[in-house]
Simulated assay, not measured.
Amino acid sequence: MTTSAPKRTGIFSGSFNPVHIGHLALANYLCEYEGLDEVWFLVSPRNPLKEKDELMDDAFRLKLVQLAISGYPKFKASDIEFSLPRPSYTIHTLDKLKACHPDREFYLIIGSDNWQLFPRWYQSERIIAENHLLVYPRPGYPISSDSLPANVRMVSSPVFEISSTFIRQALEEGKDVRYFLHPAVYEALSAEFHTKK
């Protein structure tokens, strides 16, 4: 009996406040060009130390991700961090994922800006020692691939300069930014911002 190879699963964690085409295009690229079988969008819960106005409701942000990824079988939305102890540390999330899904090989997806700060992450050395990391380029944060540890790989994905802050501000100002968002996400957000007015 032959055992199938573990599914290479990218872990894309973020607030997704809201999810936009930059997030989706990056994840799409990683599946189609960088060898991932799937990308899981892990929606981060609201940090109690941050201002409440900074983040939309946890369940609403998860719903927007679910709307954005429907129809593409390589994407999955996850709320696993909602039930983990706070503050939410990446190492604990990865440990939990590996315990729940031993048939998968996980790849943590982070931007080059976060990679430069990575030594400050909680148990960063263990994250690198026990996991694969894929680092995507962010403008102003160049990284030399020669200096990366064995488990860390730089990917040459296109760079998308779109921020969730820009999207929220545009919607608050009544701008039509439909092409920055999945159509279903734009519709849900427009309804949400219209209700608030």
Results as ranks from 00 to 15, higher is better:
100 C>I: 14
53 D>P: 06
95 D>L: 13
36 L>Q: 06
53 D>L: 01
142 P>W: 10
184 A>Y: 02
124 S>E: 12
124 S>W: 13
38 E>W: 04
166 F>R: 15
148 L>G: 00
88 S>H: 14
128 I>T: 05
97 L>Q: 01
13 S>Q: 07
113 D>E: 13
87 P>S: 01
107 Y>K: 02
90 T>R: 06
139 P>Q: 14
106 F>H: 04
161 E>S: 12
9 T>G: 06
125 E>D: 15
150 A>K: 15
22 G>L: 06
49 L>S: 12
14 G>V: 06
47 N>F: 07
38 E>A: 13
159 V>E: 13
20 H>R: 00
165 T>N: 02
161 E>A: 09
120 R>C: 04
168 R>D: 11
68 A>R: 01
88 S>Y: 01
130 E>A: 08
69 I>C: 01
1 M>A: 12
103 D>K: 02
48 P>K: 09
169 Q>L: 06
190 S>R: 12
174 G>W: 02
86 R>N: 08
23 H>Y: 01
37 D>M: 04
5 A>G: 11
108 L>A: 08
63 K>Y: 07
98 K>E: 15
26 L>I: 03
136 Y>W: 04
36 L>Y: 03
4 S>C: 11
108 L>E: 01
82 F>E: 11
46 R>W: 01
189 L>P: 00
173 E>C: 05
44 S>Q: 14
156 S>Q: 14
193 F>P: 01
111 G>W: 03
181 L>V: 02
49 L>D: 09
58 D>K: 12
69 I>R: 00
148 L>Y: 04
81 E>N: 03
81 E>R: 00
14 G>L: 08
179 Y>N: 14
32 E>I: 08
124 S>C: 11
161 E>K: 04
165 T>L: 10
152 V>P: 06
159 V>W: 07
32 E>Q: 13
85 P>F: 15
119 P>G: 08
137 P>I: 00
127 I>N: 09
4 S>F: 09
3 T>Y: 13
143 I>K: 01
105 E>L: 10
89 Y>C: 09
47 N>E: 14
94 L>P: 00
124 S>P: 07
29 Y>A: 05
194 H>M: 13
99 A>V: 03
66 Q>L: 08
156 S>P: 08
190 S>D: 10
149 P>G: 14
82 F>S: 02
16 F>W: 08
160 F>N: 10
184 A>T: 06
65 V>L: 03
184 A>P: 03
33 Y>K: 14
30 L>N: 03
103 D>C: 02
68 A>K: 00
106 F>Q: 05
114 N>C: 09
66 Q>C: 07
75 F>E: 07
168 R>G: 04
55 L>E: 14
41 F>I: 10
65 V>R: 02
40 W>F: 05
106 F>G: 05
156 S>K: 08
194 H>E: 15
103 D>A: 13
72 Y>C: 13
22 G>W: 01
9 T>I: 06
2 T>P: 11
10 G>V: 03
45 P>D: 05
46 R>Y: 07
78 S>M: 06
143 I>E: 01
62 L>Y: 06
26 L>H: 05
49 L>E: 09
88 S>E: 10
145 S>F: 00
